[in-house]
Simulated scan of single mutants.
Amino acid sequence: MFLTINGLAKAFGDLEVLKDIDLEIEKGKVLSIMGPSGSGKTTLLRCLNALELPDNGVFSFEDGLTLNFDKKISKQDALRLRRKSGMVFQSYNLFPHKTALENVTEGPIIVQKRNKTEVRELAESLLEKVGLKDKINLYPHQLSGGQQQRVGIARALAIEPELMLFDEPTSALDPELIGEVLTVIKDLARENWTMVIVTHEVQFAEQVSDKVLFMDNGYIVEQGPPEEVLKDPKEKRTQQFLQRILNPS
């Protein structure tokens, strides 16, 4: 098991966003998280990346790293957690004044202090991998939303993370651009990347996921294989949510 989480909780003031979350993330598997707005999906993802620090809970990694958030963790431990994952944001978060290539090389060179020549070669291969070989010298404003998101995926891969995190990677895209991003993520799934994906794309989640998790009001309501959770959900709240998404009126 890549990561086991027990008793994760997170509040912002009086608002409890995550409540007693127990979760296992398997190495080389894809976990998709679904649920209505405000259910805690993005906060859970940000806790995995230490962009938000949990108030309570224990993270146990397969490499022996254990973080107990019932106590205050050190900045060094928060950094160790952050270094394990690459994050792909729904709004791309690219540097507007840097080219696609520079956006991808920034983290490995500036933060990880890796060899510039090696990083550039890696960045070029990653941009080719996501179908942007001919766009490496363009700036974000010269790229479509789908192309910008693919640069974001290449940037996350460039830091060579153990875990890839996607926060609704297609939500800011026009419908005709969604497919090109989902195709890249499907390719990563075939390469056995460990991934956690917050998504509202039911068909995509069904195709790419090893496990689907449904959240509501800060709790995990239901989880299991996609054919169970998405095709034959047991919980009424999951049934209502899927009915609304699949049959909007």
Rank of each mutant, 00 (worst) to 15 (best):
E16G: 03
V208G: 02
E16I: 02
H141F: 03
I185M: 04
A11Q: 12
I109C: 01
L246H: 11
S91K: 11
D167P: 05
R46M: 12
F166H: 04
L31F: 12
M164R: 00
G131Y: 12
Y219V: 06
E62R: 15
E206I: 00
A154P: 02
N103K: 10
D134A: 09
P225I: 08
G218Q: 10
E162I: 00
D63Q: 11
I33Q: 04
L8R: 07
Q142M: 10
I153Y: 06
Q90C: 06
A205I: 09
G28L: 09
K211C: 12
K116R: 15
L31Q: 13
G152I: 01
E180L: 04
A11Y: 07
F166Y: 11
M34L: 15
V196E: 01
L230E: 14
L165I: 06
Q203R: 15
K98D: 03
V196D: 00
T238K: 14
K186H: 11
L18S: 06
R46F: 10
L18G: 02
N217A: 14
L31T: 15
E160W: 00
S171G: 08
V198Y: 00
T117E: 15
L138E: 14
Q147G: 06
T194D: 06
Q240C: 04
I109G: 05
E102Y: 03
R80H: 10
L79F: 08
R155Q: 06
K27Q: 15
Q149V: 03
L177P: 02
P108A: 02
K27H: 08
Q90N: 08
A154S: 04
R237H: 12
L246P: 04
E191C: 05
